[in-house]
Design a protein around this nucleic acid. Sequence first.
DNA 1: CTGAAAGCGCTAACAT
DNA 2: ATGTTAGCGCTTTCAG
Lengths: 357, 357
Amino acid sequence: MTDAVPRPTLEAVAARAGVSRATVSRVVNGGDGVREPLAERVRRAVAELGYVPNQAARSLVTRRHDAVAVVIAEPETRVFADPFFALQLRGISKELTAHDNQLVLLLTEGRDDHARVARYLAGGHVDGALVFSLHLADPLPGLIHDAGVPTVFGGRPGWSDDGRAGADGGVVYVDSDNRGGARTAVRHLVDLGRRRIAHLTGALDQTSAVDRLDGYRDVMADVPGGNDPRLVVESDFTPAGGERAMRELLDRCPDVDAVFAANDLSALGALRVLRASGRRVPEDVAVIGFDDMLPVAEQTDPPLTTVRQDIEEMGRLMARLLLRGLPGARDRAAAPADPPPTGGVILPTTLIRRASA
Amino acid sequence: MTDAVPRPTLEAVAARAGVSRATVSRVVNGGDGVREPLAERVRRAVAELGYVPNQAARSLVTRRHDAVAVVIAEPETRVFADPFFALQLRGISKELTAHDNQLVLLLTEGRDDHARVARYLAGGHVDGALVFSLHLADPLPGLIHDAGVPTVFGGRPGWSDDGRAGADGGVVYVDSDNRGGARTAVRHLVDLGRRRIAHLTGALDQTSAVDRLDGYRDVMADVPGGNDPRLVVESDFTPAGGERAMRELLDRCPDVDAVFAANDLSALGALRVLRASGRRVPEDVAVIGFDDMLPVAEQTDPPLTTVRQDIEEMGRLMARLLLRGLPGARDRAAAPADPPPTGGVILPTTLIRRASA
DNA sequence: CTGAAAGCGCTAACAT
DNA sequence: ATGTTAGCGCTTTCAG
């Protein structure tokens, strides 16, 4: 753990190049309006000295940080149970990196952390925030909104209708087409000739779970006997939850011939219970999941038919949207902060057919 | 996406409290040597104005950032296949948060990114770095070392013996007791009366895989016929790799009666092949994994006996070590940057007995 | 097109 | 114990 050595300043570069600080500054920041021979001299001096601008000094005057906070509420164990989180982060990181922005990660653990995060955001340390709002009743989105930091949400926030939103044009968020994906899945089951199609829901305090349930209902409305409430069993996105729900379902409706699980993990649990009960998949009961979590979906027995969403792209898009909405993004010349798309951007999903349905 | 409003400065607080900027600064930074009535007035002014210190201005003079970079080389798909990454990050985040430090996440994708990371680190944007050095031949650790930033590595770096290290007292790293854990696992198998004990290795360009293999060999040296090279099959920490390796193993040594897999994921693959081959676990072949990745280990059939490592604690410890080595950590008074523990800190592992061995 | 000069908001000597 | 003052390194008018 060596100690840092003093780094060269603008001043030093200027001296070496025989110009003023202002000129060096101009060259370093894009070099408009500096004649070529001079600019070149400066560039050489920069290289020779290994000059790197002091970001603190720069921020002090520009009031920009080229940094974005990513806020993840993580009591949500689901976040850690599947690679969702990692993929999302990867997409965000790629996009931010491409635009020379830093990623400040804020993991929150509970109510006390909310205040901390709000304070940090309000403290003007970052230019914007990417927030994953996982719960319907989460106070965080509200706090963040109040902090007045440009924000893009990951996943439809559950509070889109309360007074706060819309006040200044509404929330911006990116989400998968959960409802449409669910419809596709259930329709596929119908096309397979199944009629007793059940749904194992996700945790219903998350909009994704609600939307998938809605999609299921959309299609089942047209299926004879499709509104049998016993076919919907509430679960929670986990394998254990999937097992529990599946057992319950078998109990209620032994004649079930298809299951649409809210995600791959709960499908995994369902598969296990189905096998234990002596049912064959897909012959006796067809199963479809959601997410296309590769390590899970490809490894189940039989391999899982599922609805794929492009998680990495979600992250990427969130970052892109945020950056676009920021004033004077470094690489977009003087473009005057496009009005960010209001409301949500919905990413498509695709059905991936494997063996389970 | 509201625009930020101008925030109050020290000056403003000072005016309101009827004191000088210096006094406000003192109160804000711990408030030594300010008499109570005054201090209280200042605190009230701070609260009333909603004052938050401008970090850029502060960093400019203190040369501290209260921020730490976390560098993760992520071509390593493994990082994204299991929750390892997330848990590690959680531990780090908790510890950093507790000491009022920010976490800047740097995900790297390949060689081009190396330069970028090196530049960032050398640029003095953060006080230190936490680096996960996954590959034996990774150039990143060297680059980072050259950048002269205080660093703690996650996992024993593979280059501990090359010239660079040791030059200034050696690298600091945190790792699990991979070798010891492997020994415990294999010894357990021996105690169970097994003699034809095989090992499915991890990706051998990672020190963790090498160390686990060494631990296996330590114990097998004392087992009659234990040095049969056919008992060691190279694999890669993935379920698919585990399957492949297990098939190969069954081919070479149909008489195998126990398998120590380098991690839970490859154990999962092995389990599948074992079942397909008609062998019972643990009756015919006992299986042990490594990691105790709950979602995996508890869900296999049969549930997996495995070696647990406390991943979150690893992250926490890395952060603690780094912070401790930093000059003038905000909350450790004037303690003069403890000389950081040189070399590695090894965390213990425990054998978790379930049904597979 | 280039340079000189004025701060950005804060901390840390140094006075008082 | 409190106030005064001098920068930290940079960008940005404003002159020339």
